[in-house]
Design a protein around this nucleic acid. Structure first.
Length: 614
RNA sequence: GGGGCUGUAGCUCAGUCGGUUUUAGAGUGCCACCCUGUCAAGGUGGAAGUCGCGGGUUCGAGUCCCGUCAGCCCCGCCA
């Protein structure tokens, strides 16, 4: 645990500060959460919210809350009768100013559960600065509240301890990033939010231009092009906590606007970026939550990650790797296995340690689960002393069973789960199954972080519908130097100098070394079917810039929201975003998006063409 | 666009096989009163409901059916 945060704010004196009659009130001299026995005897004034109220008729206790925490304030008619009268009428979330003396609590009434629990403030003067309606969210309670209510009254939700902690953590994280990168010689450069629509990638949020009828800006999906131009500009080391916008459907880890720690560096190779990112993360984890992240991060190629985990973002907090049984499976009498391999498919599986006692009904549930994730079915074997217990055991010789069990390194009491299918489906279903089994068996240790680098992504993916090659990452990724010849012969085999940093199975950021030579760029465009004229239309300004002396450069863009989510121990980025949007990209608090006045549309030369309503 | 879960008092929830087990309940909050060492204070009493919305089945619907809206999780999508 980290020490409590001491709020160091100047006590505003009346001198030199504008205090109109209306705004004159008892201003705080200190904060609630920092009071300790050392303050006993001091006269203090506190400003804050009523957290809880305990009215004994004679004595009234309030827990007064501000950003720093809670302290008990006592209203005693013999000490401050007028204040005591005031305290009768206050309720939860009233904003108050109280003045009184810090004193030791009477013996036996200390509250060890409270940081300030050894002391209390005996109130002599109290003002209600503002009353409050009964809030729809009980700030003092820790129970779950419906997401709809939380988002509609976000400003109240943010008062809860959890959200205050998350907001503060996010601030500390941002501060740590800025400090570290500044020390490393980076310049923070802001790039425009109103930019040119990009033809590739996600759907753009568009902003119509009033002065250029029929033309639109786009909110940037990322400052990718701009940061590369900054390398051409000689900035050499750029970063920005950049807001990025994508008009795509939401997930637990995706919001329509999110923040990236956007970085770009000149005269670097992959190792430089790995090293920099690792040191950034080490500093970030230490400065924000005091966690020591081990370096260097393990590394894995994309191919290896797919083979061993069935995903390009494996969660390394637990094992249960995928085992390839295709060789054995090719020779068995079980047609589902041998036939699949004969047709170019694979048979792979995972070994769930100690799950050999799963009853048939549970295995049916797992089978259904695998099928929901595209597998045709799920073959299972319970490993027992003298072989396996399985409905498909009869298709295997004793020798084959022994080799399967050996391939998994399995022991009696284990459960083997196998999928036979095309490689992509085997990978996807076993990835899901692996994570599901880890969840069921509680294999994921809390409070641990397992980072890794995944590298050598394919440069292109084949778009079967459009019958063309698409950039896997983006079209400015440098092809792997060893694969330059394959560009001509077999584009699907070309690896990119691209890398993802993954933590706990979440993609935390991706980057690449960029193409800085015009001829290579044109080669990549050619493969993607973008001819010189199209390239000129789409990226002309960038390509032109590249003709004026472009340094070799590369970068990475860790997702800031996801990092903070991880640091906070949350499983949804909404919890670390002050004002998030719903899955339909709406803001329940403000009602955005909303209709606009017809005149506003007219100014923008826009006519609506809405779908018919019943 | 698709699949799943959820929707009952301000909040968190219960509500059985469709019915006299109610006038749809509980906890908390709220209101009133009592109470001088509590800290989830306690006690007594009270108010509080468009059972998300619309339609249907039925003698009878919070409960069953259809549609719809909203929130969440997932697929598609997200270079």
């Amino acid at each position: 645990m980290r020490p409590p945060v001491h709020i160091q704010e100047r006590v505003t004196s009346a001198k030199g500060v504008h205090m109109s009659t209306e705004s004159s009130y008892l201003k705080r001299t200190t904060h609630c959460g920092i009071l300790r026995p050392e303050h006993i005897g001091q006269e203090v004034t506190l400003n804050g919210w009523v957290h809880r109220r305990r009215d004994h008729g004679g004595l009234i206790f309030l827990d007064l809350r501000d950003r720093s925490g809670l302290v008990q304030v006592v209203f005693d008619p013999e000490i401050g009768n007028e204040a005591w009268q005031t305290a009768h009428d206050v309720r939860a979330e009233f904003v108050m100013a109280v003045r009184g003396q810090v004193r030791q609590r009477p013996e036996g009434t200390e509250n060890p559960g409270l940081a300030t629990g050894e002391v209390e403030v005996a109130v002599t003067q109290a003002d209600v600065l503002n009353p409050a309606q009964t809030p729809p969210i009980a700030i003092a309670d820790t129970g779950e509240v419906d997401d709809m209510v939380r988002m509609k009254y976000r400003y109240l939700d943010l008062r809860t301890e959890r959200m205050q902690r998350n907001l503060q953590l996010r601030h500390r994280a941002a501060h740590a990033v800025r400090n570290f990168l500044t020390e490393e010689g980076f310049w923070e450069v802001e790039t425009p939010s109103l930019f040119r629509p990009t033809p590739e990638g996600a759907r753009d949020y568009l902003v119509p231009s009033r002065v250029s009828p029929g033309n639109f800006y786009a909110l940037p999906q990322s400052p990718q092009i701009m940061k590369q131009l900054l390398m051409v500009s000689g900035v050499e080391r750029y970063f920005q906590l950049a807001r990025c916008f994508r008009d795509e459907d939401l997930r637990a880890d995706r919001q329509p606007e999110h923040t990236q720690i956007d970085m770009e560096l000149s005269f670097v190779d992959r190792e430089d970026i790995y090293d920099l990112t690792e040191r950034l993360f080490v500093h970030l984890f230490d400065a924000s939550i005091g966690h020591e992240l081990p370096v260097p991060f393990p590394r894995m190629t994309h191919a290896e990650a797919m083979a061993r985990y069935g995903t390009d973002k494996p969660d390394l907090r637990f094992g249960m790797e995928l085992i390839d049984l295709s060789e054995i499976a090719a020779q068995v009498d079980f047609k589902v296995f041998s036939g699949t391999v004969a047709q170019g498919g694979q048979v792979k599986g995972i070994c769930a340690k100690g799950c050999g006692d799963y009853p048939r009904a549970q295995l049916d549930v797992l089978t259904e689960f695998a099928q929901q994730h595209k597998a045709q079915g799920l073959a299972w074997m319970r490993v027992v002393e003298d072989g396996v217990d399985s409905p498909i055991a009869k298709f295997f010789t004793a020798e084959q069973i022994t080799s399967i069990v050996a391939a998994f390194g399995a022991e009696p009491g284990d459960l083997l789960l196998m999928v036979a299918d095309q490689p992509a489906i085997v990978a996807e279903s076993l990835d899901w199954l692996r994570r599901e089994m880890a969840r069921r068996e509680n294999l994921i240790p809390e409070g641990t972080f397992a980072p890794l680098w995944v590298s050598d992504f394919p440069l292109f993916t084949w778009d079967a519908d459009a019958r063309r090659w698409d950039a896997e990452h983006h079209p400015f990724c440098m092809p792997h130097p060893d694969d330059r010849e394959l560009l001509q012969t077999d584009p699907g085999q070309v690896r990119a100098l691209a890398y993802d940093v993954v933590i706990n199975g979440v993609e935390m950021g991706s980057g690449s070394i960029r193409i800085h030579r015009r001829d290579i760029q044109q080669q990549v465009f050619d493969i993607m079917g973008i001819d010189a004229q199209q390239a000129e239309e789409k990226f002309g300004f960038l390509l032109k810039a590249f003709e004026y002396g472009t340094p070799p450069h590369g970068g990475i863009a860790p997702g800031f929201d996801r990092l903070v989510m991880l640091l906070a121990g949350e499983d949804n980025i909404r919890e670390v975003i002050a004002f998030p949007k719903t899955q339909k990209a709406q803001c329940l608090m403000s009602g955005a998006p909303s209709t606009v006045a017809p005149e506003a549309l007219r100014d923008l030369h826009i006519r609506l063409n809405l779908p018919p309503q019943d």
